[in-house]
Design a protein around this nucleic acid. Structure first.
Lengths: 157, 157
DNA sequence: GTACACCTTCGAGTTTACTCAAAGTCAAAT
DNA sequence: ATTTGACTTTGAGTAAACTCGAAGGTGTAC
């Protein structure tokens, strides 16, 4: 089966048909064909493109930068260095994002430990009585970085 | 020095004073004291709280969920299990986020390799001529996962 | 004592990426 | 042939998190 409907394509990437039509309107799906009746036909190549699109979008690239990338593709070979550069930047951004996420993970693990101890004791006041706990807590807190979070790009759902 | 101004506090977390005032208005800074003249005084404890706030926010928690967490804190000991549960969920979410980011990294590395090869050859048409390249490309493309993009929460900047 | 940066509140505006409603069209099944 | 349900377009509306401007108070340096 060579083609997918908009709903099938959307489903494969956790999007809605609405969203794909929006992307199309915004010029982000430049290669999708139409049937004689005007219905969008998503080929395997289009799904590959969608995989790349969602990769870029979900790693923090704004839709307008993706549009610029499409312009570069349309320009052909002369824009290859710009495209390389773009992916290099995106890699850097993603690397620093992952590192930041790992620091956040440590903070969340700390709170899990903290509330786990609190549940054992039954109350926060009781925890504060415990010298051994306070010492351990201070030690663990010191290991948490207080970092000035650079261009972080995680969004709320 | 026991207190920081709003601008100093903002700077430590890569925010603006405007944003901190917005957070305060939204009830997200419930413990910040004021001077006799009404000026916000950020203590070390407040900075700790800001570190946690930015951690939760930047790992995808909406401000309204953070507000709910504040309500739990105000309720005292009886809400400790809910708070533990909240951090457990946040940990799961962050883990899956990091895994997804690592998959995206593979896709970006693939494109870097691809455009790197293209730059060596000088044109995409020339690349397509090269049997060895096509074989290697197909092999690498097969290793890219096409799907697992569940509740991803990275945002554009 | 006045300049000046920084603080205040309030409320309106912006950005980004959707998200949906309405009204109509297409294609397969009965 | 009609019905069903997924598809189409246009254009308006929404949500979240800021972001800014206006008008005015505060406090320290010269």
């Amino acid at each position: 089966m060579p083609f997918y409907t908009i709903a099938q394509a959307a489903e494969k990437f956790g999007l809605t048909a609405h969203t794909l039509r929006y992307y199309d309107k915004e010029g982000l799906l430049p290669f999708v064909q139409r049937s004689s009746g005007g219905i969008r036909l998503f080929s395997d190549g289009d799904l590959q493109w969608l995989a790349l699109l969602t990769c870029l979008k979900n790693t923090g690239m704004p839709l307008k930068d993706i549009r610029r990338f499409i312009e570069w593709i349309k320009q052909g070979d002369e824009s290859i260095p710009q495209r390389y550069e773009m992916f290099l930047e995106q890699k850097k951004r993603l690397q620093s994002e992952i590192e930041t996420m790992q620091l956040y993970m440590k903070r969340i693990d700390f709170k899990l430990w903290f509330y786990g101890e609190a549940m054992k004791k039954g109350s926060l006041a009781a925890l504060e009585q415990d010298n051994a706990f306070r010492k351990e807590r201070d030690k663990r807190m010191k290991e948490l970085e207080q970092r000035p979070v650079s261009p972080v790009c995680v969004k709320q759902k």
